[in-house]
Amino acid sequence: MKHPSHGAFALCAVLALTACGSGSPSGDADGEPAEENAAADGELTEVELGLIPIVDVAPIYLGQREGIFEEHGLDLTLTLAQGGAAIIPAVSSGDMDFGFSNVTSLLIAADNGLPLQTVAAGPQTTGDSENDFGAVLVKPNSGIESAQDLEGQRVAVNTLNNISDSMISQGVLEAGGDPSAVDFVEVGFPDMLAQLEADNVDAIFAVDPFASMADDEGHDRIFAPYADVVEDLGVGTYFASQQLVDEDPELVESFHTAVRESQAYAEENPEAVREVLLEYTSIDESMLEEISIPAFPEDVNLGSLEEVAEISERHGLIGELPDVEDLVWEGAR
């Protein structure tokens, strides 16, 4: 389902999007809540969710498989993208109803005036530096042994000026290094390992399943930016446009509740998380047990979001600190 945005063209221009879509809101002509109508007549409301093919979004695939979204009147279509920075303009313009993004992308969008709202919690770091789902990896015997050693090195991240390089920069700073001396290179997660092995980069920041693939090839973990920089870092969230929140709060409530239940199911069933990865990633089945599973909280961590905002401002990603509560739908706080 597509929702029109009165400021779609202006919003897309901020993020250099060349084409924007429009459509109709999710409520029906009688103005009755979408989920109530679905329950009454057996019809489901079609919604589109933009995702990245990484372990972070496993709860969504599980929720779809277990019928959780259908229970809440939603017929969910999943659309894959390389990063949240690509999903944000699609949600802003109404081309997608909901999206998944790391929290830094949403902070940057808000700083640029895009009216978005976090509506459900996503993955959270395990807090285990040795076994988190995201890590900086290097080739054996590279001489790079710590975050400080990344000075002067080429480091692959999936999106520049975002959560990965800002957290790495903060880690380098805290280790006594100069983050401005790190040469960040944008590389998609699926291509990082090949770029490292070809010596086109000196280090990669990968998340599972790609981090575990690099482990399997014998590369060394030197630093866990998500686990080491912010305690209980909430890495990503699910979001909607402010227009959708205002025009169809029942749909937002249905989506929020379905995601919350899916997160809880994933947290309670880590083996199911591993199994569902085979449906949407390229990981080999033999590696499933090696993958680090994130924590999947049910609620948005406002304290973590505030710390990420401070780091983003410190490293020049945003111009001023927001009131993070204004960025989170009241039902998700």
Rank of each mutant, 00 (worst) to 15 (best):
A211L: 10
A86C: 14
G7S: 12
E151N: 12
L277T: 00
I52A: 09
T77V: 08
R221M: 11
L15D: 10
G27D: 06
D199S: 05
A110D: 01
N301G: 02
L106T: 07
E66H: 03
D149Q: 02
A120H: 01
E70R: 15
F100H: 08
V273Q: 00
P294L: 05
W329P: 01
E43R: 15
S93T: 10
S304D: 04
V91P: 00
D183F: 13
N158P: 06
M96H: 04
E70Y: 09
N141M: 15
I144Y: 08
S180L: 14
V182C: 07
F133S: 04
L196K: 08
H6R: 14
G31E: 03
N200I: 11
Q195W: 13
A295L: 15
A86D: 15
I283M: 03
H3P: 04
A264D: 09
A198P: 00
L15C: 04
F205S: 10
G84Y: 00
L251R: 09
E290Q: 14
L160F: 03
M213W: 05
A332M: 15
D28Q: 15
T126G: 02
G188F: 07
A38P: 01
Y238W: 04
P297I: 12
Y280F: 06
P89G: 04
V259F: 12
F223M: 05
G23H: 00
D111F: 07
V201E: 03
E231V: 09
S93E: 08
D28P: 11
G27K: 10
E313V: 03
A266V: 03
E66P: 01
T45F: 01
S5C: 10
L244T: 02
P270T: 02
V155A: 06
A10Q: 14
G188C: 05
A34R: 06
I60N: 00
Q243S: 13
A227D: 09
Q82S: 15
A227N: 10
L137Y: 05
S169N: 02
A295Q: 14
E313Y: 14
E186A: 07
N131C: 11
P59V: 11
Q242F: 02
